[in-house]
Design a protein around this nucleic acid. Structure first.
Lengths: 341, 341
DNA sequence: TTGAAAGCGCTAACAC
DNA sequence: GTGTTAGCGCTTTCAA
């Protein structure tokens, strides 16, 4: 088992200097095959593993990337964390995860913590790390003055900050336009976040509506502020809106959870989907195939985004010049909650 | 911003020795209020933060806990990781996350990696880390010889290994018994894992069936081996089983995903739920309220389990004597996929 | 109450 | 090709 030997013990047993052991350990050239083998034998025999602290102390790096994520129990964020974590490992990096919650204060704290742990970079998963007010994003710039900061599905123009985003605006624009083309006019937008991507989505919806010359009733943009797991609360909100006289024949939701709330609303109120109510979700998550009829949803190619993020990060860490912002486009996956025209 | 000062810089500016700065930093007594204040002022002014490596080198601990999880995109595991991560942070510990996948080999590697990072303990989330063959669990015992190992929802009797489990056996037994009591006899068990908890669940089902004297058709225990996200594949398997002549009027599933597969199967085959087919899921996850009718599901009190795990761990790290195994019992949450008798 | 100094285990520049 | 040695930044005796 992992013994508590030091490089000195190994060097002694192998009859070489610690420098040689270190060279073998780090795969340096300039070691004869013979001594290399001799040292490796001892290392294996005693199952010696170098002390990461001592190494870190000298190199000032732990080959570790900090990942920040507001809520890893969110299906979408969890998946992103999963991809990133795997890709990182396959590139020889470890990851330090922080589930920060949605509060700016704790985000700042987590950021400091990661920096103090000497991570080589920080990856922010999800768009809720970017704020409206410029000063609220200072914590990101500060961090970026120490290590590169990678944003997944968010964008911020600042030195040493790299953004990988899905084109949520266009995706939402297309989804809305498609629903309009299928004959719906009273399309409700159901959302729960004013994050970077949240605002882009909303803007896409509005643009399509305006372009089609459809009157915008402000109430048609319903903000939901409950738990993202409480589907009943979502349905309830829609029911109440409807009872208050708001009419709608389509729902575009900012994520699949919300779309599911709309499905539940329809079922509870005896509406036929998609005849009476057409619904489009976002993320194309597991949830999209859970309900009946199944959810038409926008796939924003999360895995591709993550892959690109890691590729970019590895480039940066190797001192290469890398694009500061990359945009991928999404895709509408047609299922039962919409009618193809 | 996090400057790159050392304890030497601070000591110089404060006009004291590094030892004194260190004492202030570590809240040691034996420092006069006056010098303490003087030092703190400098520390605050320059926003100095001590180097974690150097500290770790000396103390041989980083106040960091390793978390291993096969797949953090699994709803249930992700939630557990989330709880644990939060609780750890609130106790002043950081966490190093490893998504290991389901392969023994990579699990062993992750384990070694965490140990080499000098974590203070390792938490294994989920029951898939425990294997049938004793030798396959050696990697856990090995790790436990270095740091305490905590198991969430799995059990292993070994020195320095602590288990926090939900009583899956009894939960499944009760669920099955309840379904039998409601008049069903041909109850199919749908599962996808032979993990520790997987086997306990299966055993609970069998015990209830045998006790009721119901003939056990081996085919009634359907093992699903596809992706845990592919609900269609699950439904397909049930459809095929049914077409091959297997009849069943109830499904007990080892998790909510599988139960959803059963719901889909019923819908595709025109079966009424719960009249023609009664269904019970497991985990009481978000998924339980996604479908229609909603899923009766077993809640195994994940948050309580996690809390207890952390409490136990903190006790251990403080040198206290702690219970090696704690069992919590689950609870059946009644919803639309079963008929109350 | 404070300071000096010896590690902690490793890497890398520099000698040989 | 190999060894010597000076750090890396901190904690912690031991003296004063």
């Amino acid at each position: 088992m992992t013994t508590n030997m030091t490089i000195y013990d190994i060097s002694e047993k192998a009859g070489v200097s610690i420098a040689t052991v270190s060279r073998v350990l780090n795969g340096s050239s300039n070691v004869s095959e013979k001594t290399k083998k001799k040292v490796m034998d001892i290392i294996n025999r005693y199952e010696y593993t170098p002390n990461a602290f001592a190494r870190g102390l000298g190199l000032n790096t732990m080959k570790t990337i900090g990942i920040m994520c507001a809520d890893s129990s969110d299906l979408y964020l969890a998946k992103a964390v999963y991809y990133i974590e795997q890709l990182l490992r396959s590139n020889g990096y470890d990851s330090l995860l922080c589930c920060t919650g949605y509060d700016l204060n704790t985000k700042e704290q987590s950021m400091e913590l990661l920096i103090s742990k000497k991570v080589d970079s920080i990856v922010l998963v999800g768009s809720n790390f970017i704020y409206e007010k410029e000063e609220d994003n200072r914590y990101i710039c500060d961090a970026a003055s120490v290590v590169p900061v990678m944003l997944l599905n968010a964008a911020l123009e600042a030195p040493n900050v790299y953004s990988i985003v899905s084109d949520d605006y266009t995706s939402m624009y297309k989804a809305t336009a498609q629903m309009i083309a299928s004959g719906r006019k009273e399309i409700l937008y159901f959302y729960n976040s004013f994050s970077y991507s949240g605002k882009r989505k909303l803007a896409g919806y509005r643009a399509a509506m305006e372009e089609a010359g459809i009157f915008q009733n402000g109430l048609r943009m319903q903000f939901y502020k409950g738990s993202h797991e409480d589907i009943h609360a979502m349905a309830k909100q829609l029911t109440e809106a409807s009872q208050c006289g708001l009419s709608f024949d389509g729902v575009i939701a900012a994520d699949d959870n919300l779309a599911l709330g709309a499905v539940k609303y329809a079922l509870q109120n005896g509406l036929k989907i998609p005849e009476d109510l057409s619904i489009i979700g976002y993320n194309n998550s597991l949830l999209a195939t859970c309900c009946e009829p199944e959810l038409t949803s926008i796939d924003n190619r999360l895995e591709t985004l993550c892959q690109h993020l890691i590729t970019t990060l590895m480039g940066i860490l190797n001192g290469e010049e890398m694009p500061k912002k990359t945009v991928f486009s999404g895709e509408i996956i047609q299922r039962g909650t919409t009618l193809l025209q």
